[in-house]
């Protein structure tokens, strides 16, 4: 590789970001771990993994974890596919501006309006789904409605940055659209897909706000999420339980993200990066 002589140059480039990020994110990240192995929020006696085992035994946590995983496993892939397909359609059909704006707008809407509307449609006076077994459906719907635009923006930028020569070349080769999609466009999109996946995971935490405004701290057990547990633990001053549950959850997410990262690296090798 030709860049090797300048091995420390890169550090200079990331330095401003690294300093700020280190102080504001990395230190708190490890600071949180300290709480998770303390006896209580206001008693820093070391108790090793007691809080972790306590949290694992807790019924509410189990329900929350189950619901959150269920929600994420269903809604994240669905959202990614939907937003990718819509982005492709908009790009290929050169859709009018109004279409793009309509799909993007929900991300700009404050939680209160969403709640106002969905409460009327799915709440007590409407279909009354939010109190039923199928409450999760409403949550997934709100999530997809709210976040398609977010991913769409990223995908549209990705599409416009695409190397069109490669695509044109494949057209000459006689590949049909779906072959092109499968062998050229989607592989080219790996880094962006990885980013979209990360962002969607982050945004999936934010659905808590909408559920909270719909149903408060203790919603229908079908949509009781980990964020509810975390939020309530914060209000109850049990920071040790909060942090340990969050780290358990983050570990699970991290496994997924690590797989994404490996995918990303593989892609880089294929396009000849480092």
């Amino acid at each position: 590789m030709i860049f090797e002589s300048k091995k420390y140059k890169g550090l200079l480039f990331i330095l401003p970001s690294l300093i700020g990020f280190g102080i504001l994110y990395v230190i708190p990240f490890f600071g949180g771990i300290k709480y998770s192995v303390s006896k209580s929020s206001f008693n820093s006696t070391f108790v090793a993994f007691n809080n972790y085992t306590d949290v694992f035994k807790n019924n509410a946590f189990k329900i929350a974890l189950k619901n959150t995983c269920f929600f994420m496993i269903i809604s994240i892939p669905v959202l990614i596919v939907i937003s990718f397909v819509i982005a492709l359609m908009i790009y290929e059909l050169k859709a009018p501006k109004i279409v793009k704006l309509s799909i993007m707008l929900p991300i700009a809407v404050p939680s209160g309006t969403v709640v106002g509307f969905f409460k009327k449609v799915f709440g007590f006076n409407g279909f009354n789904l939010i109190d039923s077994e199928y409450a999760m459906l409403v949550v997934i719907l709100i999530f997809i409605w709210k976040n398609t635009g977010y991913n769409l923006i990223i995908y549209l930028a990705g599409l416009s940055q695409m190397d069109k020569e490669v695509i044109e070349a494949s057209m000459i080769d006689g590949a049909n659209y779906f072959q092109r999609l499968q062998y050229i466009i989607i592989p080219l999109f790996t880094p962006i897909n990885v980013f979209v996946a990360i962002v969607t995971i982050i945004n999936s935490f934010k659905i808590f706000k909408d559920i909270y405004m719909l149903q408060g701290s203790y919603p229908n057990p079908k949509i009781y999420m980990l964020q509810h547990y975390i939020n309530n633990k914060f209000n109850d001053l049990q920071y040790e339980k909060l942090t340990s549950s969050a780290y358990i959850f983050s570990l699970m997410i991290f496994v997924v993200v690590f797989l994404l990262f490996i995918l990303d690296k593989k892609h880089a090798k294929r396009v000849g990066g480092n």
Partner: peptide
């Protein structure tokens, strides 16, 4: 870079108090 990803994946309540202390 992995640290960069990890740190924004945590729910914000977790780092809230340490952040406050920082």
């Amino acid at each position: 870079f992995i640290l960069y990803i990890l740190a924004i994946l945590l729910p914000f309540q977790v780092t809230l108090v340490p952040n406050y202390l920082v």
